[in-house]
């Protein structure tokens, strides 16, 4: 009996545990998906324009940046029309920034839910980021329409976009887990992240070309994973090649640290949620 329970296929065997784990993961995923759709629904339920807000925001921001940098300061984005250039950067940046801002309050804003039912708490920030990913897909649609309107040449290397987006999703989730956990302990995180993301935006090649800044500064901007990710996303669409390929693995490595570090921090703070909230 003992042998059977410890064997590979036994009740407590590795195979059995693996099946349970996969089933558990399935439940997590289902819950995350449901929470994400609920998030999107409640966000736009009583609003007049609904999901159009997901499109209006990047459009207005791109128009403002386009007017300031393109019309007033005559910053060149050639051969890409400046509206498309800014929209490209902002569409991907907004997914990151909105994802984090949604994740910040995802745990602290669901105190009632946490008190009622048991579920892995990490699902909450994950669902928030997934909800912003749905918004992002709408923005991406608008971005594609603008590419078609301006007849901008798109390269086949755009097929790499899902892989780069995957890195961005993991990076966003890592920071999301960190700030969601810390926000339970210190409610300043929302204000702090708002400020930090504003500074981060200007220190990333979102609204300017990387090639336009001095070489030393380029290195610093590329060490920031978001800098590399945004640059790669724009490169694969418009240039047909990654201009700074050596920084790809730097971004991957830092994404790994941020994701696992964020998850570890979340798991460490998780037992304190009940006491603090």
């Amino acid at each position: 009996m003992d042998d059977a329970s410890t064997s590979f296929l036994g009740e407590n065997g590795k195979w059995h545990r693996l099946i349970h784990r996969v089933r558990g993961m399935g439940l997590w995923f289902e819950l995350t998906r449901n929470l994400a759709s609920r998030d999107v629904e409640t966000r736009y339920k009583h609003s007049l324009l609904g999901l159009y807000w997901a499109i209006i925001n990047p459009l207005v921001t791109a128009a403002i940046f386009g007017f300031i940098f393109g019309v007033i300061f005559h910053v060149s984005t050639k051969p890409i029309p400046y509206v498309v250039f800014y929209l490209a950067g902002l569409t991907f940046w907004n997914f990151f920034a909105n994802g984090i801002m949604s994740a910040v309050g995802s745990v602290s804003g669901n105190a009632a839910l946490l008190a009622k039912i048991y579920f892995p708490r990490v699902v909450l920030p994950t669902a928030s980021i997934l909800a912003r990913f749905i918004d992002f897909l709408f923005s991406l649609g608008v971005f594609i329409i603008f590419i078609l309107i301006y007849r901008v040449l798109v390269h086949w290397t755009s097929l790499w976009l899902p892989a780069i987006l995957l890195i961005q999703i993991f990076f966003t989730m890592g920071i999301g887990y960190m700030v969601a956990a810390l926000n339970v302990l210190y409610r300043d995180m929302t204000q702090l992240m708002g400020l930090l993301l504003m500074v981060w935006l200007y220190f990333s090649p979102v609204i300017y070309r990387l090639s336009a800044v001095p070489k030393t500064l380029q290195t610093l901007l590329l060490i920031d994973p978001m800098g590399t990710i945004i640059e790669m996303e724009r490169n694969v669409i418009f240039t047909g090649r990654i201009l700074y390929p050596e920084y790809l693995w730097v971004a991957v490595a830092w994404t790994g640290v941020v994701f696992l570090g964020g998850l570890a921090l979340f798991k460490r703070v998780e037992p304190m949620f009940a006491e603090v909230m």
Partner: peptide
């Protein structure tokens, strides 16, 4: 609960340290 061995806090932390070393050295 789906919290596999990888999701034990200690193991995540150790993996995070490996990635941190990787990130610093690669950079």
């Amino acid at each position: 609960s789906g919290q596999g061995s990888l999701l034990k806090t200690d193991q995540i932390s150790r993996w995070a340290w490996v990635w941190a070393y990787t990130a610093i050295v690669t950079t």
